[in-house]
Structure formats: C-alpha cells, structure tokens
C-alpha cells in the first residue's frame, strides 16, 4: 500500500492542527475502541467557515484527510462545507488506497457535526443531520466500501 505524495505531505505537515478555544461549533466523531477519533472546532463568520482546527487519532490517511478537509472548508459557506464528500477529499489528495477510503469519512463527518452544532447553538435547523455516516448505528468504518470507487 502506497500513499500519494500529497497524502504524505498532509500527514507529515498537517495543517490547522489544534483546538479553537472559543469555538462556535464542535464536531467529534469516531469510536476510541476502533481507534479512529476526530474532533473539529470551527469559528463561523457570516455563515462561512472563518477558522477551523482539528485533532485526529488514526492512521496516515485519517490524519491527511482531516488536514485537507480543514483546508478545503476554510472560507466555504456552511452549506458548501457539509456537502464535501469523501470522494472529493480523496481526489484532492491525489487518491487514497482502496482500503483507506473509509478514513476520509471521519473528516467529512466531523465537519458536518461541527456545522450542525453551530446551527443548533444558534437555534437554527441542522443541515447535515441524516447524512452523517457515524450517526448510523450500523456504520462500520472498517466495512467494505460502498462502491464509490473501483477496488
């Protein structure tokens, strides 16, 4: 299994690592037992992602996808941010090994949760709920992939 140069770059020099102390929204996904955990904190300005930081416990792909998602999301509107798909994340990184596609769901789900958290805190309707894979009690992050890509 070989990671692309871009994955290795984001893994070795992850962007936007940390926690925003006075965050407007917080998204935490994963399960410490399977080892994949991610936390995203965001600052929202005018319904756009102003600042964003992450923390991730996981493999190289989990860290790299977290890093690139924060880069992609910065400056996006909330609606744009929750629409980021795992395939877009993989594409942005120059591809992911098939066995590692699922890792990118951690980052997209973390972002969705952070956005919804912000909206709910402000008495608004959440917009990502229902599309968050980790909310599905049957979701298995290590299950066979859903066919979005060829094996």
């Amino acid at each position: 299994m070989i990671y692309s140069d871009k994955v290795m770059d984001h893994f070795g020099n992850p962007r936007n690592v940390g926690v925003i102390a006075d965050a407007d929204g917080v998204g935490e996904v994963g399960n410490p037992v399977c080892g994949d955990v991610m936390k995203i904190t965001i600052k929202v300005d005018d319904d756009r992602i102003g600042d964003i930081k992450f923390q991730t416990l996981g493999c190289g792909a989990a860290i790299a996808t977290s890093s690139i998602v924060t880069e992609m999301a910065k400056g996006m509107t909330l609606a744009e941010a929750v629409a980021i798909t795992k395939s877009q994340v993989a594409e942005e990184l120059g591809g992911l090994p098939p066995a590692k596609m699922h890792c990118s769901v951690l980052a997209t789900d973390g972002l969705k949760k952070a956005v919804d958290d912000y909206l709910v805190r402000h008495g608004r309707e959440p917009i990502a709920v229902g599309t968050i894979a980790h909310d599905d009690p049957d979701f298995d992050p290590h299950a066979e992939d859903d066919g979005e890509h060829a094996h």
């Binding site: 290795m8 893994f11 070795g12 493999c59 190289g60």
Partner: peptide, 21 residues
C-alpha cells in the same frame, strides 16, 4: 500506522499490530 510512517520518514523500519495497518 501513523507512528510507523513517522519513523519511516526518519529511516527506521519497525512494525505494528494496529488495525489500520
């Protein structure tokens, strides 16, 4: 796996029993 990749970047080869790897 993350630990392994960082060590590899420093030229060190080891292994892990992590699920991710």
């Amino acid at each position: 796996e993350a630990m392994l990749l960082h060590l590899d970047a420093a030229g060190i080869a080891v292994s892990t029993g992590s699920a991710c790897s």
